[in-house]
């Protein structure tokens, strides 16, 4: 175990004294979930950390030559290969450590959006997780290719309006349900897999620490509101990430050593999915007369996934 002896307590008071590793002045949109998530992640870590970043909003907006917002070693190489690039960095670290050419202990994190993770980067991610690198891959999931203008991804929710599956007279947005990548990562038997949300920073930061403490391959999916793509208010991002959890669209859970744990179960306070959909312009058409069945279908998909997650938790208890 490489857990430091004196971990910074996860209190606001203690965390305000931590150095900022992603500075202000970057070009992310106001209200974007990604930089909030990144800052929470980096604040959770006390050890030196090295970052790999897939091409995407986070990458283009934080390191625009000759400027960078990163105060820790950071590398981007392409869209589909953050996991493979991080594999190379982490393996060089192990090689140099083995040879006595490097002394310091470090942690390795790769960031990708859902495009670079669920879709084009899926193979590289699967390979890296299977090979067992000491690496935490974090997907900030805003549910479409937002960087290039809100094109559909396999993480896009059912029914969402995107620029490549636009709402028209025949088609009402995305016709498929989203891919459940966190479960696919759990099926890789990684050391740690979890879902988190930036509204619950303590849960998110605890998960980052748990993931890194495993010293094995770990995956975290984090819901990341995007006011441009979700057609929502910039000041509603944290509210929307909370509603994603309260409606059970984005349950907070973790999988470790075959044990599935739901970290937050709203029980009888579970909110209808419409509460999450309503503030988002990308779902506006679902509320139009005649589309009641689509709304019902969305609720059904959420309920199915939530129930099966509860079953996984139940089954893994014994």
């Amino acid at each position: 175990m490489s857990t430091p002896t004196q971990e910074t307590p996860l209190t606001l008071k203690a965390l305000t004294h931590k150095p900022v590793h992603l500075t202000g002045g970057h070009r992310m949109c106001s209200g974007c979930g990604a930089p909030t998530i990144v800052r929470q992640v980096l604040m959770a870590i006390d050890e030196p950390v090295v970052i790999a970043n897939a091409t995407g909003c986070l990458e283009v907006s934080t390191c625009l030559f000759p400027y960078t917002a990163w105060q820790v070693p950071w590398m981007h190489s392409a869209f589909e290969n953050a996991a493979a690039t991080a594999s190379g960095i982490e393996t060089m670290y192990r090689s140099l450590r083995k040879q006595g050419k490097l002394k310091k202990e470090m942690k390795f994190i790769a960031f990708g959006g859902d495009g670079g993770t669920y879709d084009i980067g899926f193979q590289a991610l699967s390979g890296a997780m299977e090979r067992g690198h000491q690496l935490l891959y974090i997907c900030y999931d805003n549910g479409a290719y937002m960087n290039t203008g809100i094109q559909r991804s396999s993480a896009t929710p059912f029914g969402a309006d995107t620029t490549t599956q636009p709402v028209g007279s025949k088609i009402q947005g995305k016709t498929q349900r989203r891919k459940d990548l966190t479960r696919i990562m759990a099926a890789h038997n990684v050391a740690y897999a979890a879902q988190a949300s930036p509204h619950n920073w303590k849960d998110l930061m605890t998960k980052v620490r748990k993931a890194l403490a495993t010293n094995g391959p770990a995956y975290m999916g984090v819901v990341s509101p995007c006011n441009r793509g979700w057609r929502s208010q910039t000041n509603d991002s944290i509210l929307l990430s909370r509603l994603a959890v309260d409606t059970c669209y984005w349950p907070l859970y973790e999988v470790q050593d075959g044990k599935w744990t739901i970290n937050y179960d709203p029980k009888d306070r579970k909110k209808p999915i419409t509460e999450w959909l309503k503030p988002q312009g990308r779902f506006k058409h679902l509320f139009a007369p005649g589309n009641e069945a689509l709304l019902a279908r969305f609720q059904e998909l959420v309920d199915q996934d939530w129930e099966s997650l509860r079953k996984l938790q139940e089954m893994s208890k014994s």
Partner: peptide, 16 residues
Amino acid sequence: ESEHSAMSACIGASAA
């Protein structure tokens, strides 16, 4: 798992 990842890992490792 592929040559694309082979060269990507080469790039990460070399830059490291």
